[in-house]
Design a protein around this nucleic acid. Structure first.
Length: 272
DNA sequence: CGGGAGTCCTGTGGGC
DNA sequence: TGCCCACAGGACTCCC
């Protein structure tokens, strides 16, 4: 599932190929993939524009176009962006952007992902965008920010980290990995965390995300880079997908539980 | 407003 | 081998 490190990797690997390219044509294979505006208008506004920058915000990937508008992608669970040379289109391709040299193909088997064209004001369908918290790798994401967000909260810390107003860009994999590194049990309520634990958690989140970016993301099943290759962080996971295997710190068996209808992995001895 | 449950969608994999 | 069904999950909606 593309989370912050995966989208950051995609951004870095797409940028050198997309910057300066002109979108010559758009082939829409499933109209629902375009979240905004309607497809006729979408095509009309995108065709002929030059891609000036490739950016990321949380789990969103952004192509900044020559007229100041933005193409905003959300890959959700199974979305992939591929750079393709020839005519052949991959299975489950939903939309394709024809450029000068290669083509950009948005593949999304499960049809949760969307692409939006945004000029100025962000449309209602992107309401989550406006409320995104600070980037976890920025200085604004610090202990005083997190303390403020967790104060008095009765929800479980795992669920709160998945709230994009708090853990912007964090998803199921990195929430579990960060809580393990911070030695905090995911079932603890947000408001129960001590100052010291909040400091540990902030540091753990930054450390895990940076390391995952260095290894080009985690491929468990659905995530692939624009050239089709896998990420490298899956072999470095400490709890995610390790149910029944020994904790690498204490040897206790890793457990899998459900929190907020999400599967959650933890070491019951290390995480208190 | 907060928190929990339900919903969307489709491929995959376990069970028989 | 083939069929069926549970399951996976980000973010939004709904309800209390």
């Amino acid at each position: 599932m593309p989370e912050l490190p995966e989208v950051e990797t995609i951004k870095r690997e797409l940028a050198p190929h997309l910057k300066g390219e002109i979108i010559r044509e758009v082939v829409i294979r499933r109209k629902e993939i375009v979240g905004f505006p309607k497809i006729q208008l979408f095509k009309q506004k995108v065709i002929g524009k030059r891609i000036k920058e490739v950016e990321r915000r949380g789990k969103y990937l952004i192509l900044r176009l020559s007229d100041g508008s933005r193409l905003i992608f959300h890959l959700k669970l199974s979305g992939r962006l591929f750079l393709i040379d020839g005519e052949e289109s991959p299975k489950h391709e939903r939309i394709r952007f024809l450029l000068n040299q290669r083509n950009l193909s948005f593949v999304e088997p499960r049809m949760f992902g969307r692409v939006f064209l945004v000029e100025g004001e962000v449309p209602r369908v992107l309401k989550g965008w406006r409320e995104l918290g600070p980037e976890p790798l920025s200085r604004a994401f610090n202990q005083s920010f997190l303390r403020e967000k967790l104060r008095g909260r009765k929800g479980k810390i795992k669920s709160l980290l998945l709230d994009q107003r708090i853990g912007c860009g964090i998803g199921n994999i990195y929430a579990d990995e960060s809580l393990f590194l911070a030695r905090i049990n995911p079932e603890r309520t947000g408001g129960s965390l001590t100052q010291e634990e909040i400091v540990r958690l902030v540091r753990a989140i930054k450390k895990v995300l940076r390391k995952a970016i260095r290894h080009k993301g985690t491929t468990l099943s659905d995530y692939f880079r624009p050239d089709g290759k896998e990420g490298g962080f899956q072999s470095l996971l400490r709890v995610k997908d390790r149910e029944g295997e020994p904790c690498l710190v204490c040897g206790e068996l890793i457990q899998r539980i459900r929190i907020g209808n999400r599967s959650t992995h933890l070491c019951p001895r290390c995480q208190r």
